[in-house]
Amino acid sequence: MSIQHFRVALIPFFAAFCLPVFAHPETLVKVKDAEDQLGARVGYIELDLNSGKILESFRPEERFPMMSTFKVLLCGAVLSRVDAGQEQLGRRIHYSQNDLVEYSPVTEKHLTDGMTVRELCSAAITMSDNTAANLLLTTIGGPKELTAFLHNMGDHVTRLDRWEPELNEAIPNDERDTTMPAAMATTLRKLLTGELLTLASRQQLIDWMEADKVAGPLLRSALPAGWFIADKSGAGERGSRGIIAALGPDGKPSRIVVIYTTGSQATMDERNRQIAEIGASLIKHW
């Protein structure tokens, strides 16, 4: 067993022997301040990774656009098919120029040779490549099948209805392509620590998230040296922004954090800054 596999296998073990965790309302004060600064709703939840206990939450059962955070769930569904012998990570998928959609920095470079399922998941999570996500959605049967996968996990809230990039439209009061912070946090925890996926697939999923290259201005910008984070960000229309993450000190994750916002007129930089400040408060009061 590799060191990384050992780390993920012992996530519940280490967490069980940690000192009790206590909620700190100071972080919620910052979440509410972010709402004021952005002029928009902000949803927040913080779960203990081992027990699933909610440590703090704000608007945990209000719907927010998922945006690209759905790509972690998508690759979880792909990995479940791999575990069941219905898919192979090494299978190569070929596609054409007509398949390319807006923001496809990886797939646009491989029109000639195609990409493997493993490479597509890596591109979808680490670079948020939209064509990679659409190609992977095709392998599982489309958005409705991802929703069905989530329902089978016990998540009857999260739903995907459309493809990239239309799913980022974020129309107010439109339930399409949305989740709730509580539902997303619980589902992410199941994917990373539950028995739904094999140990190898859980490790692969967290490795992809740990290698995320496009979430630097968010929670990662607030992390002290030595902290662990595996995350996936999302951005959408109407001032929408979000991030889902597993993080913790001492090089291992111990909490799940989900943050979503929508309806702001603020710039992307300002949305990023507010999420980073929430992260800084979380870490300060850990």
Rank of each mutant, 00 (worst) to 15 (best):
L73N: 01
Q86N: 07
E145I: 04
L196I: 07
R255W: 03
G52E: 12
P65C: 00
V101M: 08
Q86D: 12
N130F: 13
L47T: 04
G216C: 15
H110V: 01
L55C: 03
T179M: 15
D250P: 09
Y260C: 10
L205E: 06
I229S: 10
T262A: 06
R91Q: 04
A245K: 11
E175H: 04
S122G: 09
A200C: 07
A183C: 07
A230D: 14
L282Y: 14
V258H: 06
E145W: 13
E164W: 00
T178E: 14
V31G: 05
Q274D: 11
L282R: 08
G279S: 14
G39K: 12
Y95K: 06
R91N: 10
S240A: 09
L188C: 15
V257T: 15
L38V: 01
N134K: 00
E175C: 02
L79D: 05
A211D: 04
E108N: 11
A211F: 14
N173E: 09
A123S: 06
I229K: 13
P253G: 09
L120N: 07
D177M: 00
D129K: 01
S254E: 06
K252I: 14
L247E: 14
D174C: 06
A200F: 02
S240K: 15
K232I: 08
P172R: 01
V157W: 08
L55H: 09
Q203S: 01
W227S: 06
P217Y: 12
H24S: 08
R271A: 10
G43S: 13
M184G: 09
P65K: 09
I54Q: 06
V117I: 09
V42E: 02
V78L: 10
K213L: 07
S128T: 01
E175I: 05
L191P: 12
T158C: 14
L135R: 04
W163R: 12
V78E: 06
L79Q: 03
S68R: 02
L197M: 02
K190L: 15
R189F: 15
I171K: 01
V157P: 10
M66T: 04
M67L: 14
L38M: 00
E56C: 01
A133V: 04
K32V: 11
K284N: 10
P249D: 08
L192G: 13
A84R: 08
S254I: 05
F70P: 05
G239H: 00
S51T: 08
L38R: 03
N98P: 07
V29F: 11
S128P: 06
A123D: 02
A148D: 10
R189A: 13
E175D: 02
V117R: 03
I229D: 12
E26P: 10
T186G: 05
G43H: 05
L47A: 02
R41S: 11
S96G: 07
G85D: 04
Q265H: 10
R273D: 09
L120V: 06
G263E: 10
D83L: 14
Y260I: 11
T261G: 13
R176T: 02
Y95E: 14
L197Y: 07
N98K: 12
L120R: 06
R238I: 00
S233D: 15
M67A: 04
M127Y: 08
A40N: 07
E61Y: 04
T69E: 02
R81N: 04
V42S: 08
L47E: 01
G114E: 12
A123T: 04
F149E: 11
S104N: 00
L49A: 00
R159Q: 10
A185G: 10
A84D: 04
R162V: 02
L135V: 08
Q97N: 00
R202Y: 04
R202H: 03
K144Y: 02
E35R: 06
M66H: 04
V82P: 02
T267N: 12
A170F: 00
R91F: 13
